[in-house]
Amino acid sequence: MKHSESYVRFLLPVVTLWWREMVRFCRQRSRLVGAFGQPLLFWILLGGGFSASFRPPGLPEGTGYLEYFYPGIIALILLFTAIFATISIVEDRREGFLQAVLVAPVGRTSIVLGQALGGTTLALLQGMLFLLLAPAAGISLTVLSTLGAIGVMILVSFGLTNLGLMIAWRMDSTQGFHAIMNLILIPIWLLSGAFFPASGLPVWLQWVMKINPLTYGVAALRGCLYLGNPAAAGQVPPLLPSLVLTALFGLVAFVAAAGVARRSAA
């Protein structure tokens, strides 16, 4: 009955924690509304409102703000879902669920990986749902660009979820988390090229955007959406380096989150 094989011992907890996130999500519909509805509303209201007066510089003729904002909103959906997933970790700790996981013979790396994959899957599902609206933004997707966008979404949401986990493992209240979210996570999104492009900004802001890892996630997303027509993506970092940096960000964030979890006292 007891399976001592090390891969089972590592993977079984990962799978079961991931599965639990899925079941919970399906039973809490309000989370879907929060993580999907709000960005959708932002897109329509902000995108629609700005497109009359604001045309981002560096874009080819005919590209409106609604279209520019579209990949940015996907990034926002991924960010929101990652944040929700992370808040649920803080709640797990407060409610006692996490304690039971911590006294089980399970490594912290397994726990973090399970949590991160859970958050990533949820973010990806919602991102894919939003991808269906691409034609409404004036973007025509091919099979290849769709697959590419999905791949980028996986990398970005894995990185963001781990970034959130890194914070959540240090927190014991959701209130503290909201403060961090507004001070760190939202600015990361605002300064990623999701909301406005870097060109024409003050130099210091351009530098902030250059060292912001999400900048390359959003750039990679743009690159994939306009796979056949790179010029339409505007002045963003090129696709391949962006992909590599985004993958690297995911890896570093995971290692850091696992490190924080290992050091964290129960």
Binding site: K2, L12, P13, W19, R20, A104, P105, V106
Partner: peptide
């Protein structure tokens, strides 16, 4: 039941 199964998985049972 799901709670019990989840617990079992953490202890390497399946």
């Amino acid at each position: 039941m799901e709670n019990l199964l989840h617990h079992g998985h953490l202890y390497g049972l399946w």
